[in-house]
Design a protein around this nucleic acid. Sequence first.
RNA 1: GGCCUCGUAGUACAAUGGAUAGUAUAAGAGUUUCCGAAGCUCCAGACCCAGGUUCGAUUCCUGGCGAGGCCA
Length: 597
Amino acid sequence: MSIINQIKPLVIKELKNLYGQDPIAIGFQEAELTINNTKPEFEGDYTLVLFTFVKQLKKSPEQLGNEIGEALVKANPDIFTAYNVIKGFLNLTISDNYWLGFLQSNFSNTKFGNQPANGRKVMVEYSSPNTNKPIHLGHLRNNFLGWSVAQILKQSGYEIIKSCIVNDRGIHICKSMISWQLFANGASPQSTNTKGDHFVGEYYVRFNDEYKKQVEELVAGGMKKEEAEKEAPIMKGTHQMLLDWENGKPDVIELWKTMNGWVYEGFDVTYKRIGSDFDKMYYESETYIPGKKFVEEGLKEGTFFKKEDGSVWIDLTAEGLDEKLVLRKDGTSVYITQDLGLAQEKYEDFNYDESIYVIADEQNYHMKVLKLILKKLGKPYADGIDHLSYGMVELPSGRMKSREGTVVDADDMVEEMVNVAKKKTEELGKVKNFTESELVELYDIIALGALKFFLLRVDPKKRMIFNPEESIDFHGFTGPFVQYTHARIKSILRKGQGKREKAPVGNSLLKLEKDLIILLEQYPAIIEQAVVEHNPSVIAIYVFTLAKSFNTFYTEHSVMNAESEEKKQLRLQLVEMTANVIASGMSLLGIRVPERM
RNA sequence: GGCCUCGUAGUACAAUGGAUAGUAUAAGAGUUUCCGAAGCUCCAGACCCAGGUUCGAUUCCUGGCGAGGCCA
């Protein structure tokens, strides 16, 4: 258990001893105690805020602080060595022996921070691509978030099923298909040497160009715009194709399969490159049918109702929302229909305790409705549904728009980062003895490290801005900074191999040594926070802070030329644990760390 | 029109009902005979506005202004 959580019950205990009442009875809970890191300008490691008690106990903060501080030190000399009170704050100093004991029992544990299996099963649905366009920067945020949250939960003892729902049907897919029929002349990704998803994406764009042209021609011929938009031959063809698809017309199905196949080949390359993987794929072309069945059941059971025109609805006015359409009058499904069916199917497949949906925040309302409907239907899994809502990645000018060609393509982005990594590395000239394949791997590690860190370091809920003019930095609060720190430590450890036997207790810690240990000790609590919040950014921030703290220590104190042999052993342990925790934290973000760079 | 987010240095991001609001970048000044300078040190610079609750509000509440999103 982390030291901060050990302190709380001790404080409660002393309060009880000192003031003769059960503190819980007079309103104190452990959770209400505020204990913070002591600010660097004051003496101490952790600080108890005293204002909370002042009123109930009718004592001045100074008096309270001194009484509690003295009692704590007296009762727990092995933990606390000193205290001081400034204004309403009780600063506590933790004994060096505690920190040293902690270090010695954990420094070589590469699994520090992991938790044993807890028997809970969680599905994480992420990525969820559309088969008519390649993956872009916004999808990358989704992929990295989903993968990382899954990893964080996995290391914390949860059983994880990563799933992906592919949007592979509907009018938009037909647009790409008809465009291919009209313009491709039988071309394929192979014949044009194009990545499959990009190939199909081009025909989707081509559709829109042609459609616009046809509408303009019709309008020029005297037709009204709305009518022209319906009458444009390419659009009529698309609608026909959708009908043919739903009716299973063989040549349409064949084309659909072929073109989706191309897209999947392209996606596979990208997923492999960025490290996304899934345990279970779902396809909307399959889930829309259970969705309809789901609605039928809801009708029978009475939660849904049918209007005169035959459309099916649910009334959510009692919940402060409105009436929501779940099936169109022609019997075709809307988005929510499919999602209802899919939720049911996922539960039947895996019997999960929790189901996390990594979906952009523009779907907040939709997800709220989904959960609400499932709840109204009394589904046992409704409460376990959790929307991990993330903000859009925007350009300085606003949202990315495919029509304006401002979409940042994922493959291009990765490629660009690899080039930058190569250039920067060559400039520094530290990799002369690397083989060609080692270099390729290193550039990949750095490039993806920079990209993932950049997208994960921000609170998922907040939208973030990416400026394509400035390529992602390698200095400061970045992945490569952390990776570099790791490489430096590994360099030290190569020199000090086999020399990390136990250091004697009683060694008094210098400030920068203690700062590092305190941070290391907080790692499990940080992971816990990331688990509760489903938020990888706390890990990114932590790992950066740790790397920074190491760098400060490193310039000030020598490891291999330490003042004494004991100090050297201690620092080797300290540094090894730092490397382990950096590697561990980065792995939770899906980022590899190099031995040398 | 209704509902939901969000307003923190030039820029990009943190944190917190509590001590002087952190970090990075960019700008300025240093730093390499000594374990890796993708580093380190110093120096500047911000809580949208107005009320309210509180011993204490950047944080919670209300209103305004501004940005974004969703619904029909």
